[in-house]
Design a protein around this nucleic acid. Structure first.
Lengths: 340, 340
DNA sequence: TAGATAAATGACAGCGCTAACATTTGTCAA
DNA sequence: TTGACAAATGTTAGCGCTGTCATTTATCTA
């Protein structure tokens, strides 16, 4: 047992100070129940006094698993994922695991690369977005030998566990609502055409087809990331292209807010001449004038559930419900409350 | 040299396959220039073929530093920090370092705890928010033996490096602008009273005092996190409390948007009867009706600069400018364009 | 050609911790 | 009192990599 130059405290030093062996200290920290209360207390005091924090690298090297939980999402800075992250962090705060974030930038190839990097760390668990992994990624995840939770959507063939909801049905609910409210020329605005957006589009199309209202000209999509500004622009385009439009279903709320603003500038009255519906129910849509109808999704809850499932998996507890559909809720507000 | 049960490839296996020793493979991966081109190429091929990814835990344990760069921010889900993160990630994508995020929840104590956890990993670099660390945290950072960049603000006594701007001056510019536009009863709405918000308040007060317009009744603060909804509520309160108010300087743009919406509901005309100014210049404030004046800050750039400074520090390059003031820019828009 | 020097490579130890097994200690029934 | 058994603790080895220093090989000069 020797002290190091850099002043960091090691297990051995704690062990020496507490008059026990290193392994006992290790156990006291990771499985306190197998160490006698007396030793545990002595160790606790010494750890506190010396400010000992275990080196996760050494721990990871010595064990078959590290304390890293990997989270693979398309974008760290997207509102929607930010909410999911908040949920994850809220549960993880009390735990000994570290979160490792990575950012696939909506690319399946990049996802695969990042997955390999995650796996090189022998993670304790993994959370990945969506259900459209490449075959190679799926194989990697199957072999990962740790709990894996797919989030954002539900679908057939879970790799391991899943928490999400049906974007297709969410869109159907929104568009059906607009049809019920008497709108007939309902447009779709889509940005960042990721798989989930695609499925929302499909839901939109299925409802309009069923009512014989489908019209290609009313569908406007762009690969650009969605912003309020973009909503303004897309709606401006739409007005040029199809001035007869009487409602807009937006891929998400940022666009919907943009549409509202642009409609106001054009003196198009909402909801009388134009119905607007968003997706996700971000907090802002409840307080605009008029307030905007949206499909509420349970993003923070999704994060919490996902990480709890991972933790349960790590603890070896049986997960009673490996695939959880959180559903959604249509929140009808003023922007689709057309009268007469 | 032996293979492992779990199928993961090790350095030794690569070395054997390439007909060199393990250390040569290690060097080929980390400092290719010291390995002969022939060996380098053979190793590259084998690595590719076997899909070898080095174990960062083993590497961290063997070296005095890990490849972790720690980022300590108050909230992962705040728009402002999300932008900073985007900047950091954009630079880091091409690098071999991993980002480790932590979330102090605006608590100095929590910051200190998280810092200890970071340091237990012997990070390659650290980015921390703000300049109000506790004495203990400052000590830890001084001893950290890695580049440290403080972001969000500038101030005296940098721990190591700094990138930010003056919130005090930003607020002064905003409030001066409102005074210039003829507003006389200018209120301050503040949420989440963190140190930066406090400094903005100070800037606000200094301008109003200089003009003899200071009035306690016009200052409304809350510890709650800022949202658009909260902006609505605070403004409603303000109207009850001080109906003579003719302008509002908001702590940040979420609040400003909320104030605008609430003003519209109350049929208070903006900018004629009420001036509004936000802070940060989020994208939405440019497209509201009317558009909202704000103080533009360079958040993504701040992230990019900060991580570049860390990387330069790691590489041992001299950082020519250890304290960078990115400034701000007042973007005057319709919400303060009172005429007459 | 020998000797000096640089470039490339290798042997070895050890980073701090934990798994697996070994040993000690305490407790109880027969 | 002894043996059986569980609880508590210890010993040993090794996780996969890199720092240090030693050695080999190539290159050049006198």
């Amino acid at each position: 047992m020797k002290k190091r130059g850099d002043g960091r405290i090691t297990l051995d030093e704690i062990a020496a100070a507490a008059g026990v062996s290193a392994i006992t200290v290790s156990r006291a920290l990771r499985k306190p129940e197998v160490v006698s209360p007396a030793a545990r207390e002595r160790i606790r005091i010494v750890v506190e006094e010396l400010g000992y924090v275990p080196d996760p690298a050494a721990s990871a090297l010595a064990s078959p698993r590290s304390d890293v939980i990997g989270v693979l999402i398309p974008s760290v800075t997207n509102n929607v994922f930010a909410d999911v992250l908040r949920g994850i962090y809220s549960v993880l705060e009390a735990e000994r695991f570290r979160l490792q974030l990575a950012n696939s930038r909506y690319s399946t190839l990049e996802e695969e690369r990042l997955l390999r990097i995650f796996l090189s760390q022998r993670p304790a668990g993994l959370i990945v977005s969506g259900i459209d992994q490449s075959e190679a990624s799926r194989k990697l995840l199957f072999r990962a030998d740790c709990p894996v939770v797919q989030i954002m959507e539900t679908g057939p063939d879970p790799i391991d566990m899943m928490v999400g909801f049906s974007h297709y049905e969410g869109a159907r609910a929104a568009v059906s609502h607009m049809v019920d409210r008497g709108y007939r020329r309902i447009a779709f605005l889509g940005a960042r055409m990721d798989p989930r957006t695609q499925r929302r589009l499909k839901g939109y199309e299925s409802v309009l087809r069923a009512h014989g209202m489908h019209d290609e000209r009313l569908i406007l999509c762009t690969p650009r990331a969605s912003t309020v500004q973009l909503g303004c622009e897309l709606f401006a385009d739409l007005c040029d292209r199809a001035p007869e439009v009487d409602a807009v279903f937006c891929n998400n709320d940022d666009l919907a807010v943009g549409v509202l603003f642009e409609a106001q500038r054009r003196r198009i009255s909402v909801p009388q001449s134009l119905g607007i519906c968003g997706f996700n129910d971000l907090e802002i849509v409840a307080v605009t004038n008029p307030s905007i109808t949206s499909v509420r999704t349970f993003r923070e809850d999704m994060g919490r559930r996902a990480i709890r499932m991972v933790l349960a998996g790590i603890a070896g507890k049986p997960v009673e419900e490996p695939v959880v559909d959180l559903g959604f809720e249509l929140i009808a507000r003023e922007s689709t409350a057309r009268t007469g």
